[in-house]
Amino acid sequence: MLLVIYMAKIKVRLYGLIPAKFVVKDIDIYKPFNLKKLEKEIISKYGDVIHKDYISDRGLLNHQLVRIGDSSGRRLDYEDDISGIEEIWFIVSISGG
């Protein structure tokens, strides 16, 4: 029997969630996946350095403070299908001067 495992590589920008860090990471994740699964993967990898304000009581990212979007800037939330997306931004609002 041939076992095929679908693995996706997704570029994730974590801007400001880790204090003073603006990092771009490639994350490998099994398909199918959704935003909730991706957030869990992010928290498993970086949860110890992401500021506590940005993690919700449910162990996901706190969407009140973390804004999520695709590379075009379209906002994303849990109900959106992100399976075809290659890049996702997670940002916190920082206002310049």
Binding site: A20, F22, W89, G96
Partner: peptide, 24 residues
Amino acid sequence: NQTSQALKAYGTGVAMATAPQTGD
């Protein structure tokens, strides 16, 4: 404060990095 730390690390221009998402 996280914002203080971001401003210290990259200056106010750091907010331009998030502009593609916020549209600010």
